[in-house]
């Protein structure tokens, strides 16, 4: 219904209304669709997505990307910067699949300066953390560079780094998702853990449909379709949404030397001195 209304407006209005709608329901923040009130209130500390992939241009390196600051419009993105009060952190542990070991290596990022023109970004590590768990202090710095220099800056330890606004690469059919799981819409929160509670929670699975049936037999009020969907989130122009990307192209040797396992497990955190 909302989508139909939006489609009937001018392109500019589509952008504004979509942005407002998404922001208001707190529902689409990259793959991190809903977040706690604390995180929502500090969007520059709101991590939308994390990527780790082999460098397309240098086989000796691996790329770490942390995207923050969801739903930036093209007008807003050029004014955005990292939050100088926030420690951005990739945490890493080494070991077999399924390990529950604590982090044994961290890469941290901080920023100073409060305009895009003057902001300087500093990378710390990779190094062993000063302590494990949810409280952190900075490890040794590896170098600093200017904000939003798309050519990247190679630090003394070989890391090539960039921080600045980029197109949000996450793709997701939001409106299909809300048809399937309406309780994930912030305005219609789930109140219980199971089906059959007072608030409708789930339209996808029909308990009577146990046939494992063919496509088209779906249940529970969800219209089964295999029609290619135009993503209502980031790719659909205009205008598309942007995020702030922290891109670190890290020599694999920095992550493997001294460790018995070449399997790493990665997560991203943001932290402040107050936790808010």
């Amino acid at each position: 219904m909302r989508l139909k209304r939006i489609a009937g407006t001018t392109l500019t209005l589509v952008a504004l209304v979509t942005a407002a709608f998404l922001y208001n329901i707190h529902a689409v923040r990259g793959s991190d669709h809903q977040d706690s009130p604390t995180v929502v209130s500090r969007p520059r500390a709101d991590v939308t997505d994390v990527y780790v992939f082999p460098s397309p241009t240098d086989p000796t390196k691996v790329v770490f990307i942390m995207n923050v600051d969801p739903l930036l419009t093209p007008a807003a993105a050029p004014n955005e910067i990292l939050d100088p009060a926030v420690m951005y952190q990739f945490k890493i542990t080494h070991g077999a699949v399924g390990t529950t070991a604590a982090e044994d290596q961290v890469i941290q990022v901080s920023a100073a300066g409060t305009t895009p023109a003057v902001q300087q970004v500093t990378v710390y590590g990779p190094a062993a953390p000063n302590s494990t768990g949810t409280n952190s202090t900075f490890v040794a710095a590896s170098g600093s560079f200017a904000f939003n220099q798309s050519a990247g800056t190679t630090l003394g330890n070989g890391i090539k780094a960039f921080v600045g606004p980029r197109a949000d690469p996450f793709f997701f059919d939001l409106f299909q998702f809300f048809k399937i799981l309406p309780d994930r819409n912030f305005s219609n929160p789930r109140t219980g853990n199971t089906l059959g509670t007072a608030t409708p929670t789930f339209n996808g699975f029909n308990a009577g449909d146990t046939s494992g049936g063919a496509a088209g037999s779906g249940g529970g009020g969800y219209a089964c379709s295999t029609t290619a969907s135009q993503n209502a989130l980031t790719q659909a122009a205009p205008p598309g949404f942007d995020v702030l990307s922290i891109v670190l192209e890290v020599p694999k040797s920095l992550l493997t030397t001294g460790f018995s396992s070449q399997i790493i497990h990665v997560w991203a955190t943001t932290s402040t001195t107050t936790g808010t």
């Binding site: 991190d32 500390a45 991590v47 997505d49 994390v50 990665v266 955190t269 932290s271 107050t274 936790g275």
Partner: peptide, 11 residues
């Protein structure tokens, strides 16, 4: 000390 307020890994 910085206190963690946000975590994201698998999407």
């Amino acid at each position: 000390t910085y206190q963690q307020m946000e975590l994201l890994a698998r999407p």
